[in-house]
Design a binder for these strands. Structure first.
Length: 313
RNA sequence: GGCGACGUGGCCAAGCGGUAAGGCAGGGGCCUGCAAAGCCCUCACCCCCAGUUCGAAUCUGGGCGUCGCCU
């Protein structure tokens, strides 16, 4: 899985925070250079989660898309599965003489697709180890669980904050597979790219971006986000482990259950999205392979020409 | 006009003489199979002025402002 992928043409990755116009740019670019879009978005993966994830509507898609609507919200998905999907797309699209354009805000997914991210084989998201240790954390507390890890694998424990229970549990999962979190982690200091790719990042002034996010959330509500969520609930949405955590969905569920007013829910969606954007900025900022374009003006045409110019260099 | 209450960071809010809790928002950062998740770090000199005091956000006087009630 670590072997470099030989492609005729490098993959183009369009990344950046939410609401900067990645989707439109990707499609415009794909149209112009005979490309296909691979969405690297952990939530657009799910069927039926359309409005709240900002998924491009079916009737507006002018190029082939991959990575959308491939999983039911009640089922589990993971970065490992996405890696596999993306790599297969790259090979297939390239073989047909077309261009792969990765478009997405989920930094982990983009890196899993392009870089040497080694995930153990198999689909074991809801494995028994995870369940067991999650219960221990709940019953005895974060610190107690972390101390258990420290006793078994002090090197890994040293790298993980005691409150970061997710990571602590992951370390136990690796132990169960005969691996060591610290050891895996040590091999990650530099980015090892295994897929030829160029990176375009869309950036936007924070205050402006947050304003844009707020407007976008209001639009989602107008477009029927609440009904979308109601429909999902009828289909067993709650059974999912990832999908129900999506911004815009968990808040509406809370409102439908009477825990919040709709206005409060909307406000929370806006705030959560601002914070999400901040985390995305932090994630992509440190990747110096990215060429950043200013997306303040959201003129997609203009952005595309800039991106195109960048790519020709 | 009278009476009463209040005035602490962007918001909410503790403190009631000993050198500014906490929450939210904001900012910075981490991240190798749940990632739109999870986690860490960070942010004030207390409306203004004059006093009392070794020392005041905390007490006194005045000013300004806000809110409530009354005429």
């Amino acid at each position: 899985m670590d072997a470099p992928l030989a492609l005729q043409q490098p993959v183009i990755c369009i990344v950046g925070p939410t609401a900067t116009g990645k989707t439109l740019l990707a499609q415009n670019l794909a149209q112009r250079i005979d490309g296909e879009v691979i969405s690297a978005d952990s939530m657009q993966i799910y069927r039926g989660m359309d409005i709240g994830t900002g998924k491009i509507p079916l009737d507006q898609r002018t190029v082939p898309y991959h990575g959308l609507d491939i999983c039911d919200p009640g089922a589990a998905y993971s970065a490992a599965l996405f890696q596999d999907l993306a790599r297969r797309c790259f090979i297939d699209i390239d073989a047909r003489g077309k261009r792969s354009i990765v478009c997405g805000g989920t930094g982990l997914y983009v890196r899993a697709a392009i870089d040497a991210y080694e995930f153990p084989q198999g689909d074991q998201i809801e494995n028994p180890v995870r369940t067991t240790y999650a219960r221990i954390a709940q019953e005895r507390g974060n610190l107690a669980l972390w101390q258990m890890l420290k006793a078994q694998d002090s090197a890994s424990a040293a790298l993980i904050h005691p409150n970061n229970t997710r990571r602590v549990i992951r370390a136990f999962e690796l132990i169960a597979e005969g691996k060591c979190y610290a050891q895996v982690h040590a091999g990650l200091s530099e980015m090892k790219q295994v897929v030829p790719a160029v990176f375009i990042g869309l950036s936007c002034n924070t205050a402006l971006l947050n304003q844009r996010i707020d407007a976008r959330v209001d639009t989602m509500i107008e477009e029927g986000l609440v009904d979308e969520v109601k429909g999902l609930l009828d289909q067993g949405f709650r059974a999912g482990i990832t999908a129900p955590q999506a911004i815009g969905y968990k808040e509406i569920v809370a409102a439908l259950e009477g825990e919040l007013s709709l206005d409060e829910a909307i406000e929370r969606i806006k705030i959560a999205t601002h914070r999400y954007g901040k985390r995305q900025r932090t994630w992509f900022r440190k990747d110096n392979r990215i060429t950043w374009l200013c997306a303040d003006s959201q003129e997609s045409e203009q952005l595309m020409h800039q991106a195109y110019a960048e790519l020709l260099q």
